[in-house]
Design a binder for these strands. Structure first.
Lengths: 211, 211
DNA sequence: AGTGCATGCAAGTATTTACATGCATGCATG
DNA sequence: CATGCATGCATGTAAATACTTGCATGCACT
């Protein structure tokens, strides 16, 4: 019923794109909440504001919608590595920045991540997609910490566990906020900062750090 | 078809209890994997090795099964507090012990926790049940750390974030292992210990701690 | 004016699913 | 032996669900 703005660069496809996007968006939202089975094609069509048949004109089957949605998780490593490459005043600033980058990546993909989590056992490939984000985040951070250790900027330790703890913290904060709606009683920026402090100094350590 | 061993203490109810338990166990397993909708009464009956009708002789409706399952999460605080009360050689030992206690509590309830996570948006009360475990774990640990700070065993800091980081680590490890089947490349006991070390000393700190 | 294309609407189909009913079986206990 | 009780089995039902088909509408572009 809606018609495309006259935009020659899009050809005649603007309308099609729009409905397709509306369907995908509605499906993403519903599947994240209710799971694949809970997101019926009827509900999707209602939320998208289109007729149910229209869904099947755009997607051969319901799983095709899911498969389309799942394409959005990939290529995360690059963004994470970018967030860790720049110049920072000190390691703490790097950590705070990395925490923010990672948390925002999670939030940007929250619906798809939820779908993967919920559907983990029904769609096996989904597992890899889901886990790839935190696993990559741990890996990238771990490598950076190792680098610091080799350069003498950090004492030798267990960078993998450290990275795991750091990433876990924001993974949990993310789940608490967007899946379970628990209030953690701490602002995100404050959490990034305090967690970075604790990761660096621990809770039992005098603050005697250089730089 | 099976008949109860002659056990007067159980009266004539042993048989009934047994099938009931078989149904609950099958439902727990399936719902944790496939979600509430994915666990059809037919599949439950097959896994339980009973006839589908038998399910409805024991439970009025399918949700009644779910409700029954959800009763198992409660009363966690007591167990967590017990695990933190005893005498320990040093704070690190206390942390390692607490980590183990918490992780085991998660593992013991893994199916129900997964169900809660998956069904979070469909069964609203479920959310509270699910979140209660990590939230309580953070709370109990946070209180203990505050106590240490007041007694001068730890410098003043941010015990809440510290507790959150610690609990998050094992929450993530738990999810990785039991939901996503990711191998973290570290044994659990080792993880408990290394995480405790890092929480206490950080990664940028000379080991000059009294305990 | 005419053609194509995306969509809406009404109706239908085959399957799945939660749940019901009636009947038969077999053990246990009085 | 008789009664009760838990279960199996066959069958049924009403709703939901993924997906189909046929037809009408209205905009866009030629």
């Amino acid at each position: 019923m809606e018609h495309p703005p006259i935009d020659p660069s899009l050809g005649g496809k603007a309308e099609e794109q729009e409905t397709r996007e509306k369907i995908l968006s509605a499906a993403r939202q519903l599947m994240a909440q209710k799971g694949y089975k809970g997101a019926t094609t009827r509900k999707i069509s209602e939320l998208a504001g289109v007729n149910e048949v229209t869904i099947f004109r755009h997607f051969k089957t319901k799983v095709a919608i899911l498969e389309e949605l799942l394409k959005d998780i990939l290529d995360v490593r690059q963004q994470l590595e970018q967030g860790i490459q720049g110049e920072y005043a000190d390691i703490k600033q790097l950590l705070v920045n990395y925490a923010r980058t990672y948390f925002n990546l999670l939030v940007d993909r929250k619906e798809i991540l939820m779908i993967c989590m919920i559907e983990a056992d029904n769609q096996p490939e989904v597992v890899k997609l889901f886990s790839s984000l935190p696993v990559t985040a741990v890996d990238v951070l771990c490598n950076k910490l190792k680098e610091f250790e080799e350069q003498g900027h950090l004492p030798k330790g267990d960078p993998c566990t450290a990275a795991l703890m750091f990433i876990s913290t924001f993974f949990y904060a993310f789940m608490a906020k967007y899946r379970v709606n628990v209030d953690l009683d701490i602002e995100e920026e404050k959490l990034f900062e305090n967690a970075s402090d604790i990761l660096l100094q621990g809770i039992n350590c005098k603050k005697t750090t250089k730089q």
